[in-house]
């Protein structure tokens, strides 16, 4: 069975189970629009008192907000719910049911829960991004698009690996769920360009909790502010994170002793 088919099956399951709760779509839509209102409201309040924020124009920040919502949507659609479920499984011992399935356990764990209505955020983020670009009146060539897509892919890989590493800790520590709270609250910090933060916080947001790579770097790619060095750094870190999270997962799963053992 190919990986893509497994992923598709879980997506379909997510869609099917959520179709039972169609009202949730409207709840999610409302929630997303409220989130957008707060993000835009925040920008409006800030730019009511200034013209640029750390060298970023309002339109640039609009693009950034779009990417922030888009990436947040992806995280909340698949990565976060799956990892939360996984940590619960470890605590209760029900991870056994996942492990005995004849497929790669990391893959199964990573896509096991899909909250399909979060697609609203994924789409909404794209819309905001496009609106920002249109208002910038920037011509986007193939070059910028390619750079942006590459930066997005690296950002996604880094964030996913980061989530996986944190979740894998639940093999050793109970109540690690709270760790996701760190990410969620740190993620808010990504709604602003990391350049404005003091050095220690910028370092944290770039290397310890890699939100800079997930949001600021792609935004810079799209608005033509990205340097080649940063892009290659993102590629390098993405590759390194994917490998190390995989390795750590294997150590963790070996350590796991199951519910009945």
């Amino acid at each position: 069975m190919s990986y893509l088919r497994i992923i598709w099956i879980y997506f379909r399951l997510g869609i099917l189970s959520e179709l039972e709760y169609r009202a949730n779509f409207f709840v999610q839509l409302l929630e997303s629009l409220l989130g957008l209102a707060v993000a835009l409201g925040g920008l409006a309040v800030v730019f009511n008192h200034t013209d640029t924020l750390g060298g970023w124009l309002p339109e640039h920040l609009l693009v950034l907000v779009g990417i922030h919502i888009h990436v947040g949507g992806i995280i909340n659609m698949v990565i976060s719910p799956s990892m939360q479920r996984f940590m619960e499984d470890v605590r209760k011992g029900t991870l056994d049911f996942t492990i005995i399935k004849p497929a790669d356990s990391q893959l199964l764990v990573s896509v096991q829960r899909v909250e399909i209505w979060k697609l609203v955020d994924v789409v909404l983020g794209l819309v905001v991004m496009v609106v920002g670009m249109v208002r910038l009146r920037a011509a986007i060539g193939w070059g910028e698009t390619a750079v942006f897509l590459l930066a997005m892919f690296c950002g996604a890989a880094i964030v996913y690996s980061f989530y996986l590493i944190l979740s894998t800790f639940s093999f050793w520590f109970v109540k690690v769920e709270n760790i996701l709270v760190i990410f969620q609250s740190m993620y808010q910090a990504g709604r602003w360009p990391v350049g404005i933060y003091p050095d220690w916080l910028r370092f944290t947001l770039t290397f310890l909790v890699p939100i800079a790579f997930a949001v600021t770097v792609p935004a810079e790619g799209l608005t033509g502010q990205l340097t080649p060095q940063t892009l290659w750094l993102a590629v390098g870190i993405a590759a390194m994170m994917l490998i190390s999270s995989r390795t750590f997962w294997k150590i963790g799963i070996k350590y796991y002793s199951g519910a009945s053992a």
Binding site: N178, I179, V181, I182, Q184, S185, M186, Q188, A189, W192, L201
Partner: peptide, 12 residues
């Protein structure tokens, strides 16, 4: 962990 969640938003 919880403390980080408390500090970050006002800090931002």
């Amino acid at each position: 962990i919880w403390l980080i969640g408390l500090v970050i938003p006002p800090l931002v």
